[in-house]
């Protein structure tokens, strides 16, 4: 019960606060994580390919 009430309160709070700078430039970050994602994808597909080839 308590938790639910708390959650509601929290919900309101997070709506009130928009102080964090949304306009912050994070283009480089986005590009960097996309590279990370690319490495994961390529590595995984590579081993999946090896697995299928060896089946």
């Amino acid at each position: 019960m308590e938790t639910q009430i708390d959650k509601l309160k929290q919900g309101k709070k997070s709506k009130e606060k928009k102080t964090q700078p949304e306009q912050e430039e994070l283009k480089g970050t986005f590009a960097a994580v996309l590279i990370v994602g690319g490495i994961i994808l390529v590595g995984w597909l590579g081993v999946f390919g090896l697995f299928l080839e060896r089946a």
Binding site: L26, G37, W44
Partner: peptide, 25 residues
């Protein structure tokens, strides 16, 4: 809790990729 727009996209792409792995597997 506040998620940056790019982080939202990144996490969606990440979760999507993982879901794709699960489906293939």
């Amino acid at each position: 809790m506040h998620l940056h727009r790019y982080e939202k996209i990144w996490l969606m792409l990440g979760a999507g990729g993982l879901a794709l792995f699960v489906v293939l597997l």
